[in-house]
Computed example of a mutant assay.
Amino acid sequence: MENPQVGMMDNLSYYDTSYTDFEYEVIEPCSHQNNHSVELVVGPYIHSIICILGFVGNSLVIITYAFYKRTKSMTDVYLLNVAIADLLFVLSLPLIVYNELSSWSMGPVACKLLRGSYSMNLYSGMLLLACISTDRYIAIVQARRSFRLRSLPYSRLICTIVWASALLLSIPTFYFYTWYEPSYTEEIFLTEGEENNETSRPSQYVCQFRFMDSDTAWKTRVAVPSTQMAMGFFLPLLIMVFCYTAVIVTLLRARNFQRHKAVRVVLVVVAVFITCHLPYNMTLLYDTVNMFELQSCEASDALHVAKTVTQTIAYLHCCLNPVLYAFVGVKFRNHFRRIVQDLWCLGKRYIAPRRFSRVTSEMYVSTRRSVDGSSDNGSSFTM
C-alpha cells in the first residue's frame, strides 16, 4: 500500500554551514540518489508487470461473473468486489507512478480524485479479504447457521458498508492532497546569474499532502498512516488469523483428503497476505514513529529505499488475489476454460471462411448454453 506521508520534512537534512555573507543555518534537501535509482527501475518496469498481471487476472474474474457465472453465494459477491477494487487499483497505479517520477501534469481535480480513489480501493480490498475469511469461518465452522447468515442480501449490505467505510477512511486523502508548486525551491542556492534564468524555467507542480498550519500537519501525518496500518492491515490480519485458525482446526478433524488439501490452501492464503503486507507496514510503522526525528541524509535515503521496495511487494497481492481466491476453485477454473474456448470460437468465426461461420456460431451458442445451464450450488472458493 502507498505511504501517504510525503512532504518536505522527509527530504531535508539539517547541518551547520559557515558562510561569510550569511549568519543563519542553511537547509539543503537530501538528494536520495539510491532511492531515485531504485524508483527508476521499480516504477517503469516492476509496476508495469504488476499492472498487466493484475489487470488480466481481475478482468477475468469480472468477466466470469458478468457473462458465465452468477453471484449465487456470499463469497461470490465478495470475490467480485475484491476484483473490482484490485482492478481500479491497477488502473490508477500507472498514472500515479508516472506523476511521481515527473511533474504532476493532470491538474488539481485529477490529483484529488486519483489519490482518493487509490486510497479507497486499497481500504476496500483489504476489508473485503477480511470479509471472505469471515464467510469461510461461518460456512465451515458455523455450518448449521451458515444458510441463514450467508444470504445474498446480507452480502450486498456488507459490501456497501465496506465501500462506505473505505470512503470515510479516505476523506483525509481527498481533502489534504493538493496540486501545488512547492516552495522548497533552489532559490537560496542560486547565484545572481542563475536567478535571471529561473523565470524561464517551467513550473514544477506536485500532488502531495499540504497543510495550512503545523498543528494540522502534525496530527494528520500521524493519524493517516496509523489508520492505514490499523484498518488496512492489522484488523484484516487479526480477523484472518482468528477465522482461518478455526477453519483449519475444523478441517483437520474431518478425515477427508479434500479437506486436508483445503488446509494447505488456507495456509497459503494467510502466508501470502503476511509476506506481501507485513514488511511494508513494519517500515511504515518505523517511519511514523520516527517521523519528526532528525535524520541524516544516508538514513533518510535508506528508509525511502525500504519503503519503495516493500511497497512494491505489497502491490503484488493484487495480482495474487485472483489466483488465491478465485481460480483455486475447480468450478471457477472450468469457467475460465470456457472463456478461452469462446474466444477461440469467436476468432475462428471471423478468420475462417464464410461457409464455416454457421458452424462456429452454433458452437459458441452451445458452449454458452452449457455454461448457463451448469449447476453451481456453492462458492467459487472451494475449501
Rank of each mutant, 00 (worst) to 15 (best):
P4S: 04
E192L: 05
A166E: 05
L303A: 14
L127F: 04
M106P: 04
D21F: 05
S103Y: 11
L235Y: 05
C297G: 03
Y68H: 04
T360C: 02
V269F: 07
K331Q: 15
V249Y: 13
Y325A: 11
A254T: 13
S117K: 04
T199S: 13
V323D: 07
D213N: 10
R368F: 13
S379T: 12
V97N: 09
D135M: 04
R349V: 09
G347C: 09
T185P: 02
L238A: 15
F211T: 03
E25D: 08
S380R: 03
E192G: 05
V222L: 15
V309N: 04
V56L: 13
F381L: 14
K307R: 15
I63L: 08
S366L: 07
I339T: 06
D213F: 01
I27M: 15
N11A: 07
V330C: 10
L129I: 13
N99F: 11
N121S: 14
V289Y: 08
S214R: 06
S119D: 07
S92W: 04
M74D: 09
F356E: 09
R264V: 08
R201H: 10
V224S: 11
T312G: 07
V90R: 00
L114S: 12
T288R: 02
L157F: 12
V56T: 13
M363I: 10
V109S: 14
R210F: 07
V82F: 00
C51W: 11
K307H: 14
L53D: 02
I171A: 13
R148L: 03
T288Y: 03
Y280K: 03
T227Q: 12
E195W: 11
C345D: 01
D301M: 03
S200I: 08
L80Q: 02
S155Q: 06
M126E: 11
P4F: 03
H317E: 14
R355N: 12
I161W: 05
S203W: 02
L129C: 11
S103G: 10
N99P: 08
L128P: 00
L60S: 07
K261A: 12
S92R: 02
V268Y: 08
T20G: 01
I63T: 06
E198N: 09
I351F: 14
E25P: 01
S380E: 10
M120K: 05
L303Q: 13
E25N: 11
D215E: 09
R358D: 07
T227A: 14
S117N: 13
S73A: 13
L237H: 01
Y15G: 15
N334M: 15
L251V: 05
F22I: 05
L101N: 15
V97R: 07
M120I: 10
E298L: 07
S124N: 08
M212H: 06
V309T: 05
M8G: 10
H32S: 12
